[in-house]
Nucleic acid binder design. Structure first.
Lengths: 210, 210
DNA sequence: TAGATTGTTAATCGATTAACAATC
DNA sequence: TAGATTGTTAATCGATTAACAATC
């Protein structure tokens, strides 16, 4: 087991491994070698072995990796055996979409409450969750055990909402407002339009093909 | 001007620069040095100069960079002076959210049409765009000049939709289905829940702080 | 045992950072 | 001119890839 700090790049590959292994398990594949996996995922086999060995030896020499075991271990490393309560602030386009989204396991990542400041939206029920007045946010956070805050406000309010979430004890922020929020907890700033800009760049500067 | 191929990392920093410079221009800042910018953006000053010099010398020795000029140049490099027509396939949660989204400039990135296969949704108007029957997709693409396809379907349909978009002549795919679509054009696979998994990983393995 | 494939060390490659001469 | 700051070359650092001994 490699004990040097796990790099950012490795961490971001973990969900990819998890997804692919889930696929393999569903297809009934029982074992896989790093070479085979490397072909399927367009990664380097050495890299795959290095990545897995950051967390301990999950393979067996001469055999490869047992898919179900590896899947379970990576799930545990990512923390998918945990239960997280989340709040969404801002029940506009993206907030609502995330409330209804089922791309992540609902048992694992649970939307406990949603908040907005618009009277027309407050009180509405979306995917079984009633939208509350954002003025009630701070009290709510103190009375409930929430781990993750999702920011879907306008960019102007994002940082102050973030501050309130952190003051309320949250340890992780998933921000969709088009600004980098800054906080002394774990933050993922999602900049959707940045990725669209990347496509624009490539179209503009296309030295063709992919 | 550095003529070696512009690296992936540089490309993905371009939208960040663009956002920050827009901010600066709005605040009325006229000039900025790489040192100052590095502080504000938490990047290294050398890196900033290297990045800009991939595309030519935008600065002036002893002075720094003129914000408005740099902003305009980076916008042009990204291709934000272009007009793109886009189609959205899948008018579910995320599809609808993107139709209503105004995080990207509407003049620049225009949603020309949306498609779905669900009768209840077909015909509905969302943000001024009527949802069409997805069976009409191929004809539509041949009759209209579309550059970017946005996939917001279930993961099961994503690849076949992608194939149809490419067959229809599109050169760029923005995919939100939780699967990596493969195509011989430019593809951005957005895996929203992967970033949530990263937060989960950090919470699980927190050696505290940010 | 022989063959396969891991775990791990070493080599390579590329990206980031530092240094400094050029120049405004 | 002197001072500031770029553009660019060189040094460093870390991540990726290759190699191979360990071992199932």
């Amino acid at each position: 087991m490699n004990d040097r700090r796990v790099s950012e790049a490795v961490i971001r590959r973990l969900p990819k491994y998890y997804r692919h292994l889930t696929e393999l398990e569903q297809r009934g594949v029982e074992r896989i070698s790093s070479a085979e996996l490397s072909r399927e995922m367009s990664l380097n086999a050495s890299q795959i072995r290095q990545d897995f060995n950051c967390f301990g030896g999950f393979g067996q020499q001469g055999y490869g990796y047992q898919v179900s075991h590896l899947l379970r271990e990576i799930g545990r490393i990512i923390g998918l055996d945990q239960h997280y309560n989340m709040v969404i602030v801002g029940a506009g386009n993206i907030g609502k979409a995330l409330m209804r989204y089922n791309g992540f396991d609902k048992d694992n990542f649970h939307v406990a409450a949603a908040f907005d400041r618009t009277p027309a939206i407050i009180g509405r029920e979306i995917s079984g969750v009633t939208v509350r007045d954002v003025t009630a946010l701070d009290d709510y956070l103190h009375e409930n055990d929430i781990q993750i805050g999702i920011i879907c406000t306008q960019k102007e309010e994002a940082q102050s909402v973030c501050d309130r979430l952190v003051a309320g004890g949250l340890r992780a922020i998933w921000n969709f407002a088009p600004i980098d929020v800054v906080a002394d907890v774990f933050v993922e700033n999602i900049h959707l339009s940045d990725t669209l800009s990347v496509l624009s760049y490539r179209l503009r500067n296309q030295r063709d093909g992919e």
